[in-house]
Design a protein around this nucleic acid. Structure first.
Lengths: 202, 202
DNA sequence: CTTATCTTGGATTGGTCGTTCCAAGATAAG
DNA sequence: CTTATCTTGGAACGACCAATCCAAGATAAG
């Protein structure tokens, strides 16, 4: 008896995700969403509830479809330090060029836009996921003897995580990718064992 | 002939600065400002122009009265690496406890809230100022032989700057100060010369 | 005191916000 | 085809937005 939905919910959510990512929550009105998705307000509210729910849904989608794949790739990359360097290379390229240049990271942006809300869980999930991926990569690097003697791995994972957030933040305001790369590169060199016979190209 | 102002402009700006800092620009309405300053809309617009000008004025005030003193203290601290460690200690304490706990940094927050606007100059000034302070401190540390052999100082300054932004961002969402301290401490240890005879307490 | 000029408070502007409501259209089981 | 139930579009809601306007109050030079 009932009618079926006349649109693809995930396709809609993808469009909404882009809006929130680029413009932020508060700067994005329902009218913007209506225009971008070509849906009516009724369908929107019927399918997703309130704007706040729409926002958290977009955050979840971003975490699942954008962040998590990056984390997984890093965590399962068995190259050690080069894997970490590669992660940052991709990150910086993603943040400074292409379709999403200077958009920052939707989750990082949420830190500023939605403090102490229901989004906190998502933000902590993001942080924990990224940190875990770094931890895994550092573990591999440790096994290969690439790390500086006596390095605190947990601390190093936190360091790299903070650096990633720094990249996300600064890139949104048009930081030069060379500067970001220099900052990352120097830190990775510092974490690495004194370059005896290893290649200096991290 | 003319009448004089019946209120202290800087005192007003200080109150506005706090509002924007805690709540963000978009979440702060003119009504909030009227209530907090106990001024009328007329006086406000007459003295500062638009909300946007009020915001940039608040940013400038923050940069002058909050950020710059921290930068100057760091730049003129001749202790080397301990000066840098002390800077981060103060920063983390400021961000995680006291009256402004979990407010983040007004300038860092502006990265997310106002992209590609007239604020860009302010944001770049902030970045340059912080980076210059780190550079000065690293120079001293270098002179004392505290730094790892062959360390790129410019790169290290950028690293530390990115870390500071990471602290600012994560602290706004309630990051644990111990985690932040661990991340910073490990990085500073990595930048330091292999601890031969030096104290391990950075 | 007069008077020109500024400041101040409060009402008000047009616009946009997120959300709700309702009638019309679409759907598929019976 | 009938009919119950969903979806859809568009109008409408009150609340709030930034900003303006104007009359009343304050000020200080002449």
């Amino acid at each position: 008896m009932p009618d079926v939905k006349h649109f693809d919910a995930d396709e809609t959510l993808a469009a909404v995700e882009l809006l929130f990512w680029r413009q932020g929550v508060t700067a994005t009105g329902i009218q913007d969403i209506v225009s971008a998705t070509r849906l009516s307000r009724s369908s929107l509210y019927n399918a997703f509830g309130s704007k706040e729910e729409l926002y958290t849904a977009a955050l979840e989608r971003y975490l699942d479809r954008r962040s998590r794949p990056m984390f997984d790739r890093l965590a399962s990359d068995d190259r050690g330090l080069p894997a970490i360097a590669d992660f940052f290379d991709r990150l910086i390229r993603l943040r400074c060029s292409g379709r999403h240049a200077q958009w920052g990271c939707l989750i990082s942006n949420a830190h500023t836009e939605r403090p102490a809300d229901s989004t906190r869980l998502l933000l902590d999930q993001h942080h924990a996921g990224l940190r875990a991926a770094f931890t895994a990569a550092l573990e591999v690097a440790q096994g290969k003897g690439e790390l500086r003697h006596g390095l605190d791995q947990a601390g190093a994972a936190e360091t790299l995580t903070l650096l990633a957030y720094g990249v996300n933040l600064r890139s949104r305001s048009g930081a030069r990718p060379e500067d970001l790369k220099a900052g990352i590169g120097t830190c990775l060199q510092a974490l690495a064992a004194p370059s005896g016979r290893r290649k200096s190209t991290l």
